[in-house]
Amino acid sequence: MAAVVLENISKKYGNVTALKSISFQMDDGEIFGLIGPDGAGKSTLFRILATLLQADEGRASVAGHDVVKEYKQIRKKVGYMPGRFSLYQDLSVEENLSFFATIFGTTIQENYDLVKDIYVQIEPFKRRLAGQLSGGMKQKLALCCALIHKPEVLFLDEPTTGVDAVSRKEFWEMLQSLKEKNIAILVSTPYMDEAGLCDRIALIQNGEILKIDSPRQMIRDFKKPLYAIKTEHTYSALNYLRSASYTRSALPFGEFIHLTTAKSYTPFQIKDDLERVGIPIQEVKTAAPSIEDIFLDLSETNELIDG
């Protein structure tokens, strides 16, 4: 059975379109990633699925229940972690967890095995007020609270935003272990490098889905020649490349420029061409595409996406 089904979901806030006819399915026990920049409509989508907002058009169901008519059943079966930290800052770690366990009609002991792996990491601080925890700790606690009632579907809206690299890695390891317990996880992130950790991802921008597939398949399908160019003169190199006849796209990418071309060249040909117009180049190499390359390639606007 599909954990989440969306059919042509659209949502507007006044004149601003947040979601344009979104459709996809998510299977049980799947980690499904919503990848896109801020303002893409990810949080709106989460709120519609968590029965907090009603879509203007389209239908959606979660764990087999319609999000509008059967919202009460859904609220028993999902765990929801909103985009910003939404626990009681003036309650301690333990008080938060036991409160959320109680309102879902359970206790910490009853479902301890589910949260154990995560909770042991924050247990040393269980008397500390939640507001005084570090970003990573807060997110672990929030995940515990969202999990404590053994939900069938977990909605995690940008759980790793504002969290340090080590904690991010740990967080994703936890999600992998939850997947093994057959909990379907819908997770959003603006970090492209986390996309590869999902079973399937939807690239989303301006309320529209650009592409849905497994990250590996997406990379496999990316057939365009891709080069990474390293230079100290990024700006002039970009300007030149964008006017060059062979360029499909040229975008800054960390310390490199990522260039896709219509036809295949050798790295030397590109290096020669750039040096011919007087731009010193340190290195040109063929590059393996990442999700970010795919995203940038698919998005019509060539705006910089934070990686």
Binding site: A50, T51, R75, R84, S86, L87, Q89, F104, G105, C145
Partner: peptide, 12 residues
Amino acid sequence: SGTMEILLVSPL
């Protein structure tokens, strides 16, 4: 503080 969001998405 956003906690109302969580309270709403609960069987309460």
